[in-house]
Computed example of a mutant assay.
Amino acid sequence: MTVCRGCCCGTRRKHPDVDHDRQLDVLRTAGAVQVSECLNACDRSNVVVVQPAPLARLLGARPVWLGGVLDDAAVSAVARWVTAGGPGLAAPPDQLTGLRFAAPRWGRSTPES
């Protein structure tokens, strides 16, 4: 997983009621987590990109971008999905419905919200 935590995602300034460190701890229980400075999707914070497992990637699965991963239910759902196999190997939990979005095009600036 890649978790945005730089420019505005994962900051107390933008989301003062979210325990961002706890979110990372929960996600790390499911697998490796890379923290990114910015994923260029500031209008969707907090952003988590769930990478498919190697086998799923070979079968054609692609990374899934999730935005608005702010509450405990969403963070736990991401962790459960990754533990179950993630994109291409397991269906995403219902709690993630509506959080999926298309990856931003690199080089395009996204206004900070």
Rank of each mutant, 00 (worst) to 15 (best):
residue 16 P to R: 02
residue 17 D to R: 06
residue 17 D to V: 05
residue 18 V to P: 12
residue 19 D to S: 00
residue 19 D to I: 05
residue 20 H to S: 05
residue 20 H to F: 08
residue 21 D to P: 07
residue 21 D to Y: 04
residue 21 D to W: 09
residue 21 D to R: 07
residue 22 R to T: 04
residue 23 Q to P: 07
residue 23 Q to E: 11
residue 23 Q to W: 11
residue 24 L to F: 09
residue 24 L to Q: 08
residue 25 D to W: 09
residue 26 V to F: 04
residue 27 L to G: 06
residue 28 R to S: 09
residue 28 R to K: 08
residue 28 R to G: 05
residue 29 T to Q: 15
residue 29 T to I: 12
residue 30 A to E: 15
residue 30 A to P: 14
residue 31 G to H: 06
residue 32 A to C: 03
residue 33 V to I: 15
residue 34 Q to C: 00
residue 35 V to I: 08
residue 35 V to A: 01
residue 36 S to L: 06
residue 36 S to W: 04
residue 36 S to M: 07
residue 37 E to N: 12
residue 38 C to W: 15
residue 38 C to L: 14
residue 39 L to Q: 12
residue 39 L to D: 11
residue 40 N to P: 05
residue 40 N to K: 10
residue 40 N to Y: 12
residue 40 N to C: 08
residue 40 N to W: 11
residue 41 A to C: 03
residue 42 C to T: 14
residue 42 C to K: 12
residue 42 C to M: 12
residue 42 C to A: 11
residue 43 D to F: 13
residue 44 R to A: 04
residue 44 R to V: 03
residue 45 S to P: 12
residue 45 S to G: 14
residue 45 S to V: 14
residue 45 S to F: 13
residue 45 S to E: 15
residue 45 S to H: 13
residue 46 N to I: 05
residue 46 N to P: 15
residue 47 V to Q: 09
residue 47 V to R: 06
residue 47 V to A: 04
residue 47 V to L: 02
residue 48 V to R: 05
residue 48 V to A: 02
residue 49 V to Q: 03
residue 49 V to M: 03
residue 49 V to D: 01
residue 50 V to C: 01
residue 51 Q to P: 06
residue 51 Q to M: 06
residue 51 Q to A: 04
residue 53 A to Q: 14
residue 54 P to Y: 02
residue 54 P to N: 01
residue 54 P to D: 03
residue 54 P to A: 01
residue 55 L to Y: 06
residue 55 L to T: 09
residue 56 A to D: 09
residue 57 R to G: 00
residue 57 R to C: 00
residue 58 L to F: 09
residue 58 L to D: 09
residue 59 L to M: 07
residue 60 G to E: 02
residue 61 A to G: 08
residue 61 A to R: 06
residue 61 A to W: 07
residue 62 R to A: 02
residue 63 P to E: 00
residue 63 P to L: 00
residue 64 V to A: 00
residue 64 V to P: 04
residue 65 W to F: 03
residue 66 L to F: 07
residue 66 L to E: 03
residue 66 L to C: 01
residue 67 G to M: 11
residue 67 G to C: 10
residue 67 G to W: 14
residue 68 G to M: 07
residue 69 V to I: 15
residue 69 V to F: 14
residue 70 L to W: 11
residue 70 L to M: 11
residue 71 D to M: 02
residue 72 D to T: 14
residue 72 D to R: 14
residue 72 D to E: 15
residue 73 A to N: 09
residue 73 A to D: 15
residue 73 A to S: 12
residue 73 A to M: 06
residue 74 A to Y: 13
residue 74 A to K: 15
residue 75 V to L: 08
residue 76 S to T: 15
residue 76 S to G: 12
residue 76 S to Y: 09
residue 77 A to T: 13
residue 78 V to L: 11
residue 79 A to W: 15
residue 80 R to K: 13
residue 80 R to F: 11
residue 81 W to L: 04
residue 81 W to V: 04
residue 82 V to H: 06
residue 82 V to D: 07
residue 82 V to I: 13
